[in-house]
Amino acid sequence: MTTVDGGDAALKAGQAGNFDNLNDVVAGSAFDRHLRFFNFGYQPLEGEPVAGPSLGPLFPNRDSAQLLFEVVGPTDLTGARVVEVGCGRGGNLWLLRRSFEVGSVVGVDIAFKSIVFCRESMPDADASFIHGDAERVPVGSGVADAVVSVETSCTYPDIEAFFRDVARILRVGGHFLYTDLMDHALRQPFIAVLEGLGLELIHERDITPNVNASRRSRAERQKLAFGDHTEGDAAAMSEFVGQSGSRLFEYLSGEERSYTILRFRKVTDVEPGPERVLTTAEQALVRQHAADAVDLLTIPSASS
């Protein structure tokens, strides 16, 4: 029997360090205050419907904003208290406040410098940002009308602990709006974990071609926002933006993973027991992916 143990502290420290370093890279640059998103973005393919409000052609990080709109889909967030786990520099919550009449937002992130940016850029009474661990979310139980998680869970070494906390902080009737690059071998197990926690799957969609299209057209340009770097830094920056030739871009183009949107609604409270739903092999795969992500996103000069 395996039990929830809170995951791997070294991996989490590495993850926090990587994103703290990324904040240092852009600090003081022309792009600093505009760089709110880190996700790979979404481009509608020809003839596809487009979710959410229309964005101007020069809207910064337009594809990243569109990814959030696709994740939200038809979910009514009017007056909602929204918690985002892995909020980064706050782009999703900033956009939710700008585009929908949400009630209040709470962002949680393991990178302290991202939290500082969020607090400084959104110093509003209805926006709170907390430095914390996605596997032990420092938010009360049953307080969230919606939990948002965009392209961050693949870095969690103990994802089942994260799913348990999502279910814990959601109220019954609340929504889990979730997307990430997922291993095919893990998608159904992830769904099974969440269903076992009282969540009902209401939408599942593979958006790999849309994310791939965004990376193909935007990654090289977005890398410019990070300025000039040494060779080692440039490799990490290529991973951060998912540039063609990067490992993360290869994952998007390969057969083993797909970028998937999952939307759930919590239908009942479930008190999880000590037993895990994910098998030992599945947990090991999750941990390996998290370790890979930390390695790929390490900026050598900033961390040395």
């Binding site: 022309a30 505009h34 052609p57 020069l58 910064p60 990080n61 926002a225």
Partner: peptide, 18 residues
């Protein structure tokens, strides 16, 4: 028009505004 006529994007705009 930035996008249609000049093929400019948000990175170009931010550079000019900065």
């Amino acid at each position: 028009r930035f996008a249609d006529d000049l093929d400019a994007d948000s990175i170009d705009l931010i550079e000019v505004v900065n």
